[in-house]
Design a protein around this nucleic acid. Structure first.
Lengths: 327, 327
DNA sequence: CTGTTAGCGCGTTCAG
DNA sequence: CTGAACGCGCTAACAG
């Protein structure tokens, strides 16, 4: 069932059918009706490949994330997909995992799919092998969400998490909390920025930071519990916790409460988890929705041929709850 | 940069380049090397549209879900995408929301994208306008995850949640809990099956069920809290809670603990939330991973032209934790 | 082992 | 307002 069949059925040429398909005004109303009726009746659907081949666009964008099962990324994808839909575009989702190899494969593969643009969530890799990204950016716009690269054709949207952590630390210092434990899971841009904020705050306060209080843990409650316990066994003192993620914060809170310890705990992303915790978790809202909206605005502009800022940064916001109050 | 350019550069015909592209053995090793080198050097990428047009397949499958930000669906998508990747296929993600209109649009749109198959997660709609699904199923395999339709070309994979609820109720009855509150969020197949189990258990025990203990709530802690409170105000008695979802169970638990009530609570899906709750939630594991694996096995078979069962049902498993123990 | 050629289905000039 | 003809990039016979 193709455009020829429809044309034949209607006694017109494919050009006319094509015009109807593309809402061209240059078709007599009566002809249009007839053609639409036949298309409807035959259940005709235009072939996207053929159209894509001619037009050089499948109206698809690649969406790369590391782990879609992560609530934060899933929510981002939800916002992104919603926006794409309004532009009659499709999202090709690809999860890369946290290995450089996974990402390389994903990039290579996505590239073949005649994608109009590439959205990368939470890039988890150290900034090596930029050549691949460069090559892609030369062909299509690349939007980085929660990471940052200075490459032509690459647009970065980030949240100022460095400042958020630094300010948080300031509050803790003022409360005489000097030994802040920082928990993270993946060493991505976002995490590195937080750690930068951590060190910046110590430096600003004229205090000495100690890297043994910067700890990588798995996103698993049992593992977090084990880590916290081991810290105590090793007599690593800490009197507050900042976690790169609400789940880690929740795990730490559970572990500490279990052994009767009580201290300020702050998570990140202000996810549903923060409110599910007992006591409820204070969390830094990274305004994911705004982040995604900005990313999509940028994409729209770039695709429309307009210019857009290559790096947009938005501020975070502290959501105070039971696990830590500033005042 | 197309296949002609490469062919010209190498002094061969496009057929030979195409053979190299498709790993045909009928190419002299030396020629192959040369062509590969040029492709590498020029950064050539075959055009998927053109290939798709000729082959009649873009190696893409449509993945429809209602809300990707939902942890359960996101996890399912993660499993699905992973499997698709091993088959060199892409996932086109589309979120429909919970309205029939959203779904219709999604189906219509996905259909245009020359998709090889359609995977539908957690179909949220009453079984009306089957004509659209029928039309699609006539063209390509349709796999339903967590829902069930008896239509040629449609394959359903479900979990026996009806039995899970019925057995759970049996345990509660034996403990003299007669008034079980059932909370749900979306009236989808999965939910209806649970409610069937609810009624089945009452019938089996020779007891009378009361629909005022079957309550729809939003997936929002405050709303759940308000609902629970209102129930008490309205003097609707209940002495146990089963929720269609861990978040609802957690919300109910929080609400009840806040007013000092203590009763068995069971959630569904055995999500990370269950363990994040305090006390930890007992939850019914619906074996999502197995569900997805089965779905993808089915898809593989159908795409390979083999026959596959039109309805596969797998059992659930109760994960006992603090909020309810059988013994 | 390699080249030639005919589609795949549609958009788009350019004539009428 | 409509139609004929070409091109998009690639695959798959078929012919050497």
């Amino acid at each position: 069932m193709n455009i020829y069949d429809i044309a034949e059925q209607c006694g017109v040429s494919i050009a006319t059918v094509s015009r109807v398909l593309n809402n061209s005004p240059n078709v007599r109303a009566q002809t249009r009706e007839r053609i639409l009726a036949v298309m409807q009746e035959k259940g005709y659907t235009p072939n996207a490949c053929a159209r894509g081949l001619g037009l050089g666009s499948m109206r698809q964008v690649g969406v790369l994330c590391t782990h879609i099962e992560d609530a934060f990324q899933a929510t981002a994808v939800a916002y992104i997909e919603e926006r794409l839909r309004t532009q009659e575009m499709n999202a090709i989702l690809r999860c890369t995992g946290s290995t450089a190899q996974g990402k390389q494969e994903a990039l290579r593969y996505i590239l073949q799919q005649q994608v109009d643009a590439l959205l990368v969530l939470d890039d988890a890799y150290p900034q090596q092998d930029l050549s691949q990204i460069e090559a892609i950016a030369a062909r299509m716009p690349v939007i980085l969400l929660n990471s940052h690269l200075e490459i032509p054709g690459v647009y970065s949207i980030t949240c100022d998490e460095q400042t958020a952590v630094a300010e948080l630390m300031g509050h803790l210092f003022r409360r005489q909390r000097r030994d802040v434990l920082f928990l993270y899971h993946t060493n991505n841009y976002s995490c590195r920025e937080k750690i930068n904020g951590y060190h910046r705050a110590y430096a600003a306060a004229g205090l000495q930071s100690d890297d043994k209080r910067i700890l990588q843990v798995n996103r698993d409650l049992d593992d977090i519990n084990a880590c916290i316990k081991q810290l105590l066994v090793k007599q690593v003192h800490f009197d507050a916790v900042i976690a790169s993620d609400d789940l880690l914060a929740l795990g730490a809170q559970k572990a500490l409460l279990r052994i009767g310890l009580n201290m300020p705990i702050v998570g990140f992303n202000n996810s549903a988890l923060a409110r599910c915790a007992t006591p409820e978790l204070t969390s830094v809202d990274t305004h994911l929705q705004t982040l995604c909206a900005t990313a999509m605005d940028t994409l729209d502009k770039v695709l429309a041929g307009e210019t857009a800022p290559t790096h947009t940064q938005i501020p975070c916001q502290l959501m105070e709850r039971d696990s830590f109050r500033i005042n």
